[in-house]
Amino acid sequence: MDRNQLTKWIKSPGNMGHKYSLDVVYFCTGCGIIEIPPSITARWDAERFGVKPVATPRQANLFLITGYVSVKTLKAVIRTYEQMQEPKFAVGFGSCPINGGMYWDSYNTVNHLDKYIPIDGWIAGCMPRPEAIFIAVTHLWTLIDKEIADGYKRYRDKYKYYRANQEKVLGELEWPPLFPEDDKK
């Protein structure tokens, strides 16, 4: 830890905390889960970056969606994302959440995940190697440093539109809105 970092720690401990302690909830929808075990075990060891898998979305602040998202999965993705506590960051892993990947012409695959929940970063590739996760993590550090990783703020501001998009695909949603309209005023 050099002097530069120390001043940062003193100035904004919260920001630095979010940076160096990313508790991940892995959402394993497709083939992406194959890349997760090597990245958290002895070969690549994600824990040295402070990246640690946790059991429930309540404890997590990084959401990694690995693999294609079908309509049914989208429901679970939204619920998981809404259960996480702010500040929270979402990262799409693999080309499927980006634009549907090789399943783009399926009747049941949601093509662009960022139409439904805000995504802070993408890891492109089919499949990305575990190293790509670490590049993404270090990139996310700079984003958090510059306060560009503001997906949760965008979600709060434009919740109306996100919810409208979600309802367009899923029909009537079973859960009440996370940010009701009256609260804003």
Binding site: P13, G14, M16, G17, H18, Y20, S21, D23, G50, N61, Q85, E86, P87
Partner: peptide, 10 residues
């Protein structure tokens, strides 16, 4: 770091 982060989280 974890504890600092958790105290800064909603």
């Amino acid at each position: 770091i974890d504890i600092i982060k958790l105290f800064n989280q909603d």
